[in-house]
């Protein structure tokens, strides 16, 4: 890793770690926690859509699979939640990989992939409703197992916050390693030209499935963590989040590291401001996504770099 990139990460980590000093009210801490969840979802979406252009419109289902497994299994099997967490993540990863394998072996166009994955999202919703005796259908499930059971009494929101930024930073480090490795080069070639990539020895299916595996694992893992954090889940939580995640990703900047961080931050702020509007927000975000895809596909990070780059050029400064 380059020195500049280490400095950058240390600064970002420091900012996150110090945020609770300013936002110490438990309502604010809850917002911060939701921010980290959405940042993680966006990072994960970045791996699959930003880096290999596989359109997964079933991100909610992949999160939900992790959530429901983590909510249901510990009590039923009598095992600790932290053992179930990776089980949920691996289940999501397996299903995500399967979807990716089918789509890339059959060379589905992005339209057909959208149809395939949103059908899966619908099936997931129906399954949750159908398995009423296990999932509680629309009423949802109250979760009694908490991974932080020993810490009850301490400031629960704050403890979760630090657990979440630890997870975020572990993810950022791993993401950085992947993107700057041979695998990252394969991803870039695939985004540029899949056909040309295959003729220089890149196994396109393998790298697409790998990206789906990593991304879906993260979705499932964060879904499980969300269940334990929120202590309650219901089906509506996993609907429509694809639009939100994609807005954060495209707005921030696909294929970059700071893009998802900025995108999720801006998104959390905006949705907090729009909250009084109720269900209309999804509509607004849908329209926003269309506008972003049409006019702002490069994302905030690229635009910021261009503006600051011009600024530094004009003033004959360099980094």
């Amino acid at each position: 890793m380059k020195k500049a990139s280490i400095v950058q990460k240390v600064i970002i980590l420091a900012v996150y770690a110090l945020l609770p000093i300013i936002f110490s009210h438990s309502y604010q801490l809850r917002l911060l926690n939701l921010l980290i969840f959405f940042t993680m979802f966006t990072l994960s979406s970045n791996i699959i859509f930003g880096h290999t252009r596989q359109l997964f419109l079933c991100q909610g289902a992949l999160v939900g699979i992790g959530s429901y497994i983590s909510a249901i299994l510990p009590e039923r099997l009598g095992v600790a939640p932290w053992i179930i967490l990776p089980v949920g993540a691996l289940t999501s990863a397996g299903i995500g990989s399967l979807i990716s394998a089918v789509s890339s072996i059959r060379r589905l166009s992005i339209i057909f992939m959208a149809v395939l994955t949103s059908s899966f999202q619908v099936i997931f919703g129906e399954l949750i409703l159908g398995l009423r005796h296990i999932t509680g259908a629309d009423e949802g499930i109250v979760i009694r197992s908490d991974i932080l059971r020993g810490l009850i009494g301490a400031n629960r929101e704050l403890v979760y916050y630090y657990l979440l930024i630890a997870t975020l930073f572990a993810t950022v480090i791993i993401y950085d390693k992947i993107v700057n490795s041979r695998v990252g080069v394969a991803f870039r070639c695939i985004v540029e030209d899949e056909i040309a990539a295959s003729f220089i020895g890149i196994n396109v299916v393998k790298y697409k499935v790998l990206s789906a595996f990593i991304s879906s694992f993260l979705f499932g893992f964060m879904g499980g963590l969300y269940a334990y954090y929120n202590l309650y889940i219901c089906p509506s939580m996993f609907q429509n989040i694809d639009v939100h995640i994609l807005v954060m990703l495209v707005f921030g900047g696909m294929g970059t590291l700071t893009g998802p961080l900025l995108g999720a931050g801006a998104f959390t702020l905006i949705s907090e401001l729009l909250r009084p509007l109720g269900p209309i927000t999804t509509l607004i975000f849908g329209i926003l996504l269309i506008i972003l895809f049409l006019f702002f596909r490069e994302g905030l990070v690229v635009h910021l770099k261009r503006i600051t780059g011009q600024f530094f050029k004009k003033h004959k400064l360099c980094f």
Binding site: R182, V185, A186, C189, A197, I200, G201, I202
Partner: peptide
Amino acid sequence: FNNMSTLDNVLSGALFG
């Protein structure tokens, strides 16, 4: 690969062929 540098284009061949 249009949006990659000359060096990165050639590098991708060396990394996977």
